[in-house]
């Protein structure tokens, strides 16, 4: 292997680790929420295996909580599936935003796309619409392992572990998104897009089903139309 390529490979490996390291503080909070999902799903009558299977295949916290609580309140399958998929619809535009940076074979793009969650996507954003695919995979893998193992601890281990809200872990997520938003605001346009996105989401929250306000907020990016 030529010397230069060896160094490229080293640099690439470092980016995977950078991604995992950057998301590590949040991975702890994700384990906590995985545990609470496992516990709540168990009490809602999901059994122990279904919550783990759901975390391993869906890998999207808010949608899973929503689907589980609807089934737990004896809602229909259709209502639970619709609510969960509406909550996950934001991964449509999010997937489009990372697509140019995910090259390679179709199976590889398909698999890496599954590691896209809000946190891994935000960590790999470099501003100006650029994304680092290795940061995305590194952080996404750590979050995946954290979420699935937390769910397993909760659904098998039970209730002894307490409520993550008591530890303030529910505030860790908006704090992380704020920390990731701040460096993106390098000029007036991203600031305006962030404010408009937040406003659209808050105004729609009381009226629209959960998930719709976040998708609707992506409309704020039309501020970037160039004539």
């Amino acid at each position: 292997m030529p010397h230069g390529c060896y160094r490229c490979a080293m640099a690439a490996e470092r980016r995977y680790r950078d991604g995992a390291r950057a998301v590590a503080p949040l991975a702890l909070a994700v384990v906590g929420f995985g545990v609470s999902f496992g516990v709540l799903a168990r009490t809602a009558g999901f059994g122990w295996l279904a919550p783990i299977a759901m975390s391993a295949t869906t890998f999207a916290g808010s949608a899973q909580f929503a689907a589980m609580s609807i089934v737990g309140d004896s809602g229909t399958v259709a209502a639970a599936v619709t609510a969960a998929l509406l909550l996950n619809a934001r991964y449509g535009p999010i997937g489009v935003s990372v697509a140019p940076w995910l090259s390679g074979s179709l199976p590889s793009r398909f698999l890496r796309a599954q590691l896209v969650v809000d946190e891994s996507w935000a960590i790999s954003a470099e501003g100006d619409g650029r994304f680092d695919p290795r940061m995305l995979v590194g952080s996404g893998l750590l979050l995946y392992v954290s979420w699935v193992s937390g769910t397993a601890i909760g659904s098998i281990g039970g209730e002894a572990l307490g409520d993550p809200a008591r530890l303030g872990l529910d505030a860790a997520f908006p704090a992380l998104f704020l920390a990731l938003l701040v460096p993106q605001i390098r000029s007036r346009k991203p600031l305006a897009a962030a404010m408009l996105g937040a406003t659209i989401a808050l105004v729609l929250t009381p009226f629209a089903p959960a998930g719709v306000p976040i998708i609707a907020a992506s409309v704020a990016c039309v501020l970037g139309v160039r004539r």
Binding site: R90, G92, P93, I94, G95, V96, S97, V98, A99, P100, L102, S103, G104, L106, R109, F110, R112, A113, V116, D118, A122, A125, G127, D128, G129, F173, P174, F177, L178, L180, L181, Q184, I185, K189, P190, L191, A193, A194, M195, L196, G197, A198, I200, A201, P213, I214, A217, S218, V219, A220, C221, V222, L223, G224, V225, R226
Partner: peptide, 30 residues
């Protein structure tokens, strides 16, 4: 997105829009 559009550069006219997707969604999430 990644399966249908993966690895293709964003058309020049749309780059401004795609650039603002991250701040808009992050603002809404916060």
């Amino acid at each position: 997105g990644p399966v249908l559009l993966g690895g293709r550069p964003v058309p020049a006219r749309l780059t401004g829009v795609v650039e603002l997707l991250a701040p808009a969604l992050l603002g809404a999430l916060v």
